[in-house]
Design a protein around this nucleic acid. Sequence first.
RNA 1: GGCCCCAUCGUCUAGCCUGGUCCAGGACACCUCCCUUUCAAGGAGGACACAUGGGUUCGAAUCCCAUUGGGGUCACCA
Length: 551
Amino acid sequence: MTAREPTPSAVVTRFAPSPSGHLHVGGARTALFCWAFAKGRGGRFVLRIEDTDQKRSSDAASIGFVKDLLWLGIGFDEGPQYEGHGGGPNGPYFQAQRLELYQRYFDLLLSRGDAYYAFESADELAAMRARAKERNEPFRYTGEQARALSADEVKRRLAAGDPAVIRFHTRAGPITIHDEILGDATLPNGEVDDFVIRKADGFPTYHFAVVVDDELMGVTHVLRAQEHFNNSAKHIVLQDALRFRRPIYGHLPLIFNPDGSKMSKRDKDKVLRKAVADKGITAPPPGTVDLAQFTAWLKDKNIQLELDAGQSLAQAIGAVLPEINVDDFRRSGYLPEVICNFLALNGWSPGGDVEKFDREFLKANFDLARVVKTAAKFDRTKLLAFNLDAIQAMSRDEFVTRVAAHGREMHPQFMSKLTEAQFRSLCDASHERSKTLDDLFRTNTFLTTPDDDLSWDQKALAKFIRGGTPAGSVHLVAARDLLARCDEWTVPALEAALKPLSDSIGNVGLIAQPLRVAVSGGSVSPPIYDTLAILGRESSLRRIDRCLASL
RNA sequence: GGCCCCAUCGUCUAGCCUGGUCCAGGACACCUCCCUUUCAAGGAGGACACAUGGGUUCGAAUCCCAUUGGGGUCACCA
């Protein structure tokens, strides 16, 4: 009954995901809010792994998502050991390692008659549910038969090794959930049935482990997604039966796709399947997925491709996968501080017209009262605009540093083919048109193509080289002659060298575009003098000559 | 279907608690124009919302009720 009134320093929040290699943006937002709430109040932020489902593996790689958390700048005070983070007095932080701890509380509940063994099999329960559904009634496990079993009978069946679960004996009465974000809600009597708290394999269910661990770890504030709202009733009755303190709850609004659907890793498969169908692809491109896997995946919409396999397939067929995980956004060249900023804006706002802020600001200002109640649709376009703004606000040096770091990790080939000076020039020429740290790599692949392998986009060729009166090629020839006589290969020198020609034509574009196409293969590149300068004299002239020769 | 929750521009939201200053503010997207050697970026304008119906009140986006719509949840998953 008594929600505790913590002193500011006593605030403890936790992020408690099930094991996963990747962090979903929704999870990231939850973690960010938990972190900001605790850290802004001088409290502790705990990371706990909810690995009570033995069907899901939970080896070391299963907390790969922690690297995403740290990349975002969300550190934790307690939790699994991970590259210098984690540890703490309330471990272990993997629930699968806390089984003895739970047993104490199972025994306590059992001895007090607040819990009991039940022997129905999964099949029997499924049948009961099916029957209830036929009658259009909700299924509620009341446990009359199970509780009618004599103590001796229970002992006998347990001794005989009959599979059994432990269920909580929910007492009659309405249950009121107090929520700092949504307000109070009361579930009528009977809504919460006698739910399972220990599975037949001896593991606690989520509901039980959460309640015990939150108490043992001193968690004062439970901030989690709204999908957990109704679960809170189960947690409350458990807390009361166990004589635990009740944490303060705050259920965060959900984050959806722009079309209102739930954001899920399956969205990637959806996009891939569509791309495969649209392009009429019947066999997997070599080096992506093997044929058997591919056909199985194509046939059964419930099969998901591994992350890497999907990525390579997408790349091979030129499909762009939607970013779902934090790591997807990292690969796409988004800045962690921008993601935090934008994520925070989905479900919270500092009020007024403020919408650009950093983690420190969030830490200092985040509060439950300003969390909105309505679900948000995740608008990648706005995120991209935020990313652009942040990149434009960078100094040239910072931009170079961060793009280089991104390039070394994501595009080592590209990086190895450019000299430091070339790379620096490319950064300077690309800074103001970069929306992500990845843009410059995606749009300038022509720079790393060997001169003799460059091919030309037919449309661009037709429009800017063959087309025009006189044809673009005429100007290209003239420009080529001027360039060949240019001793100094720098932006100002190149500009000066071509000036007479552009002046006489009266339109710079008429020589810039043919040059651009000849040298880059397409109609888009950094400013033409920059492009030529980065490419260098030899490559530039070679490419122009090859282009002219190909006509 | 039962139960629970929610409802301001296309989207994220401010305003709502403490009715009047809101013929509703900001941002992204969109449209127009300007700038421009491509693509961007940038500059200047513009269009765009209180779901509906009842109350309460001198007055409602703000309070109450209903309807409609949306979401969540009903597992030995978390």
